[in-house]
Amino acid sequence: MAMAGRSIGRGAEVNGILGIDLEILGEQASALGRAGRRVEATLAALAAGDASDHDRLIRAAAEAVWAYFIQREVCGLRRHDEAIAVYGIPREVLVRVGGG
């Protein structure tokens, strides 16, 4: 609890944001970073894979992209156009996610 310039424990205000809020934002950012790295890894595997494994790689990439989009939305990022361009997410992956 914050009172007139004094603060007590984890709930202390820092520039109008409670300490717990800062922790939540940090965890959201961390989870978004992990999800982005997973997208990168699955897209790299897709690019390097052979035709016999193509369907499995597309499914794995679509799952990673879907999870990444969900995490973006949790962070308040509702439009994914820029992320699609930055990661170079192929249309065949987006179709599996439902955004192609």
Rank of each mutant, 00 (worst) to 15 (best):
R78H: 11
Y68T: 00
A35I: 01
G11P: 04
A44H: 09
H80Y: 01
R91S: 12
G49D: 07
A45C: 05
S30I: 01
L43M: 04
Q28R: 09
R6L: 06
G33M: 08
D53T: 06
D53H: 15
E27L: 13
I70C: 12
A29C: 01
E23A: 11
E40H: 14
A60D: 04
E40W: 15
G88F: 04
E82A: 09
E40Q: 09
D21H: 10
A62N: 02
D53A: 13
D21I: 07
Q28V: 13
A83G: 06
S7A: 07
R79W: 08
L32T: 01
H54L: 10
I24F: 06
A60R: 05
E40C: 10
H80T: 07
I70M: 06
D21E: 15
R78I: 11
C75D: 10
A29H: 11
A47L: 01
A12E: 13
Y87P: 02
A47Y: 10
A83P: 06
A67M: 10
Y87A: 08
A48W: 09
R10A: 14
D21P: 06
A44R: 08
I24M: 14
A61S: 08
S7C: 09
I8Q: 14
A67C: 07
N15V: 05
L57M: 08
R56T: 10
V39R: 00
A67D: 08
E73S: 09
V39E: 00
E23Q: 12
V86I: 13
G49M: 05
H80N: 06
A29R: 14
E27F: 09
Y68F: 15
C75F: 07
A47E: 13
H80A: 01
V74W: 08
L77C: 11
E13P: 08
